Computed example of a mutant assay.
Amino acid sequence: MTVERPDAPVSGSAMLSWLPVGAMAVVAVADVVAGPGVGFLPLVSLGPAFSGLVGGWRRTALIGVAALLFCVGLGVYDGLFEERRGFTAMASVVGVTGAGIVAAVMRSRKEAELASVRSIAEVAQRVLLRPVPRTAGPFRAVVSYTSAVAEARIGGDLYEVVASPYGVRVIMGDVQGKGLAAVETAAVVLGAFREAAYDEPDLPGVSERLERSVARELEGEKFVTAVLAEFGPGEEVVFLNHGHPAPMIVHEDGGVAFPEPEAFALPLGLGGHGGERPAPYRVDFVPGDQLLLYTDGVTEARDPGGSFYPLADRRTLLMTPDADHALEALREDLVRYAEGPLHDDAAMLLLRYHGHTEGKPGALG
């Protein structure tokens, strides 16, 4: 499983780390140039003030000592200790340094608590989204999961591959919302699917089991979009779509199709609001074909100009003989296209027959 988490820009972090020193240097130069009559000296306390916002308590204390030395040196240079102004400036530096140390300690504790919560949530999500089997029946399966920005890294995208007595069954879904609540809902859906996929003789039966499980879990207008796929003994795949983006089938000759149902059904969790139940539909799937299931974080990714990711045009990236390399190439292209962190998690699941061979990329057009 591939997980991408954008880090903070290095240049921005370096700039913030040097901000306290730069502030004190600017104040020192301004004080020397303007002379003692202007009263720049107390502004030396900006150094420890900024350090308390961006650094740890030790660094804040060190910056505070440096600011105090600056204050004493400039005070002697300006002759301010012959009156109260020099001592007032020193008291200002000491007071701001103390406040900065307290702020740095409190911020560090909050950051440690937040990091712990995120770490636990991410571990829970990794356990939930366990690696799919590399082989299932006659198929090779590869999965990719690309996280969005740090504030939304815990999402509700879900996927699973089950080799059942009735064929290989697959789910790709997306829970409405983010955070631990979405992960909890995804756990319910995956738990129900893993059990129903092995027990139920057909996809509508699996769908009914999922609908009942989600209805018990979700409240209000929350929902889960999902697409189910079943590969039986013949060279075809059966789909059942609950309001999810249409799967993409890439043929050996480079042709691409997005098979859709005759009528779209409501997502899981909204079945009680009426509407048609999803009907299964069949599509040919022969050796040499590839199936890509994905969440809307893929097709709704935009470039800086606002254009959506052209998934169909990127089908040539999947023609690499190695399935892992093919899906990784598609993931990397998606991230490059967005030119920055994705705004939503993007999960992709690629299935192809064992011994899959592709035509020449040049034949794709």
Rank of each mutant, 00 (worst) to 15 (best):
181 A>L: 11
181 A>Q: 12
181 A>G: 13
181 A>R: 14
181 A>E: 15
182 A>D: 10
182 A>W: 12
182 A>T: 08
182 A>R: 11
182 A>K: 05
183 V>F: 04
183 V>T: 15
183 V>P: 01
184 E>N: 11
184 E>A: 15
184 E>M: 14
185 T>P: 07
185 T>M: 11
185 T>Q: 05
185 T>W: 01
185 T>L: 14
185 T>H: 05
186 A>D: 04
186 A>Y: 01
186 A>R: 00
186 A>Q: 01
186 A>P: 01
186 A>L: 06
187 A>N: 11
187 A>H: 04
187 A>C: 07
187 A>V: 10
187 A>K: 06
188 V>Q: 09
188 V>A: 11
188 V>N: 08
189 V>G: 02
189 V>D: 02
189 V>L: 12
189 V>Q: 06
189 V>T: 13
190 L>E: 11
190 L>M: 13
191 G>M: 04
191 G>R: 02
192 A>N: 09
192 A>Y: 03
192 A>H: 09
193 F>D: 00
194 R>W: 09
194 R>V: 12
194 R>E: 08
195 E>D: 12
195 E>T: 14
195 E>G: 05
196 A>P: 01
196 A>H: 04
196 A>S: 15
196 A>N: 03
197 A>R: 06
197 A>V: 10
197 A>W: 03
198 Y>W: 09
199 D>S: 13
199 D>G: 05
199 D>R: 15
199 D>Y: 03
200 E>A: 15
200 E>H: 04
200 E>G: 07
200 E>W: 01
201 P>C: 08
201 P>A: 10
201 P>I: 02
201 P>K: 06
201 P>F: 04
201 P>D: 10
202 D>P: 01
202 D>N: 12
203 L>I: 13
203 L>G: 04
203 L>F: 06
203 L>A: 06
204 P>W: 06
204 P>R: 11
205 G>W: 00
205 G>K: 00
206 V>C: 09
206 V>S: 05
206 V>E: 00
206 V>I: 14
206 V>Q: 02
206 V>F: 03
206 V>A: 02
207 S>F: 09
207 S>I: 02
207 S>C: 13
208 E>P: 00
208 E>S: 13
208 E>T: 14
208 E>Q: 13
208 E>F: 09
209 R>T: 14
209 R>K: 14
209 R>D: 03
209 R>Q: 14
209 R>A: 15
210 L>E: 03
210 L>N: 00
211 E>I: 02
211 E>N: 10
